[in-house]
Amino acid sequence: MYKNSMKIEFLNISDNERFARCVAAAFVLELDPTMDQLSEIKTAISEAVTNAIIHGYEDREGIITIEGNIYDDTVEFIVTDNGVGIPDISRAREPLFTGKPELERSGMGFTIMETFMDSMEVESFVGKGTRITMRKRLNKVDKSEG
């Protein structure tokens, strides 16, 4: 059984959205993902980190954590903030729902995370923060062919 794990912490500035995408992509490279799988993972991570910045911390400073785990051919990412939390999780997960229409949000973040990953769990407590857990199985491409 192949196993790996990592953890990064960074400040809630928007420059780190790209940093987080790159780290996530680099972490899964060992599993030989396809280009499509890589771009799905980068997009899902980007959505989770952007949400932590915009909605979780709003205008105050805070730390965002990404934990990555690999078990065999499955990767798991856990994105955590200690921000305001989500009062109604099922409403927040509805396609096109946004709590911040004034910021030109599209309300598609959770839908994209759900579509691009195999699973997504949201745990959140008002005043404490939010934790998003996403998993995706990356089926190995047979290298002996082509």
Binding site: E47, E104, S106, I112
Partner: peptide, 13 residues
Amino acid sequence: TFMDSSGIGVIMG
């Protein structure tokens, strides 16, 4: 090379 839902917000606006 990359776009997420923030780009959709820009287009919609």
